[in-house]
Design a binder for these strands. Sequence first.
DNA 1: TTGTAGGCGTTATCAA
DNA 2: TTGATAACGCCTACAA
Lengths: 324, 324
Amino acid sequence: MATVSRVLSSKPGNQSVRPETRRRVLEVVDRVGYRPNDLARALLQDRTATVGLVLPDISNPYYPPLVRGVEDAASALGYRVMLCNTDRDENKTAAYVDTLIKTRVDGIVIAGGSTSVGMLHRVLEPYRTKVVVVGRHQLEYPSVQVDNVAAVHEVIEYLTGLGHRRIGFVAGPASSITVQDRHEGYRAALRAAGIEYDERLVREGDLQEQSGYDIASALAAPPSRPTALVAANDRMAVGAMAALIDAGLRVPDDVSLVGFDDVSLASYLRPALTTVSVPTYDMGCAAMELLSRELEGGGQAAGTESRALSTTLMLRDSCAASPD
Amino acid sequence: MATVSRVLSSKPGNQSVRPETRRRVLEVVDRVGYRPNDLARALLQDRTATVGLVLPDISNPYYPPLVRGVEDAASALGYRVMLCNTDRDENKTAAYVDTLIKTRVDGIVIAGGSTSVGMLHRVLEPYRTKVVVVGRHQLEYPSVQVDNVAAVHEVIEYLTGLGHRRIGFVAGPASSITVQDRHEGYRAALRAAGIEYDERLVREGDLQEQSGYDIASALAAPPSRPTALVAANDRMAVGAMAALIDAGLRVPDDVSLVGFDDVSLASYLRPALTTVSVPTYDMGCAAMELLSRELEGGGQAAGTESRALSTTLMLRDSCAASPD
DNA sequence: TTGTAGGCGTTATCAA
DNA sequence: TTGATAACGCCTACAA
């Protein structure tokens, strides 16, 4: 048994097995299709080489690239990934975290603001499970972020540069910090541009296409129609574009439109959607790498390391000079 | 120890613990945040309550709903899900399967034709790991399917009903069985409609938007331009629509367009995309349920059970009578 | 260079 | 009703 173990988990400085023996072992291993049981190994070494990935909903096109990033990095670093969709539901989140603890995952990547990171902290307290957060900026855990506030600033500057003053905003639910930051950035950027915040130009959607459609339809009514619309994500932007077209308005001639996320279809819409590209794939990779560093790094590691990635405004065809 | 175990894993017919003791145990469990180690449990019971989900690429919008389906069903049935993106790469697939065996997952849901199910079979042979396949129709494993051939038939019938005779096809790579079936269905349906298969109207893409764009651009050249185009998936259809519009053609007046999958954005394109809705979420659920049945079902179970779900042609605005 | 023994955290069995 | 013990499959000392 011990010899087989030595052959199979041959570490660099560990050559105490005769070549001939090694060969024989490998021959049998191959013949019977033997695979060491990682459960037993994990039990002994107190390390599962598995991480949990907790996010609101993989069906939201924002997440798949992030998941790929996490998984590709995990795979490269020798970790497995367990997927957990919470729908931002506290109960589901708690249940998943419970499960993750029971399987003794080494770490957890948590993306998309579950409101209760405090809860997480308390539950995880007796364990060594490391946590990395994506898209939030709290001090308890290391995080990977993007400056959404600055990103909106860039958008608003671009639009005001085109002469727009009445700029509407298709907001998202309070449960998403990312989306809240975009909303906050919108207010701040307007202020910076000397434009008063007009709440009649803002409506809150649920990040799905239909709500973008409904909101744009409502906002498109003549009395106070904005000349430009910024949506908190591309899905709502797509819905909004459909609504504007259906209302007989031309994009961008009558109304300019800007999205957020740069999902893969954005550049194939007609007009192609101007939007803010968020490096979600890279964020996923970075998160996993941060987590790995925490884990390999022995002790409680470098406190609250944090990594900031930058967004890019993708100028395409959905914006034009204000008709005013 | 034994008492704590009894309290925590109280099975129905297993009440041999004094209420007062139970209370005390639970009190301490709660106080110290104790969670049983599922690794040890799994080691002993030879059951991990974990399944692997193997698919080509979560970034392909076809998959997220399927993944949700698998995960929701898994969660409801008490299983965890490990995610594996293979990119249809044999090596990655083999490596992931290896990992899954080492962690002793109870079963594997494999979606999207990896060519080497034979390999899978051989590697898995020494283990009790159950497998369910989504979207393929082979006899080794139970499967969940959709009749892609029939779906294309319906599309072609619809188009011929609108007077189309020159119908192009934006095909996909041979590595995807689903997409091959759609291609096969296209040939068969044309034949059934008495239309000759014209290979100049068919080009193979890679399922991404850009290839749809390129193919539609090529096909839009005047000499032999088709009056209708069917794409093997929505992403390519979106690219194709952009290409047609860019070529100065009107959809659907000059060219009708049909997609496949009914991704969430399809109905928000303008014109709204007529496409075949595939119940991917339900397929995911069904796959996990099938797998669970195999697992709970004790022995090697009901041979090769198989479940077929049906598609729906979503009539929207991207098709019109042939201009011919 | 190889073999033996102990223990990781559970649960099942058997004794008390 | 509760406690002690063996075993799940592996790895790491330590002995041979």
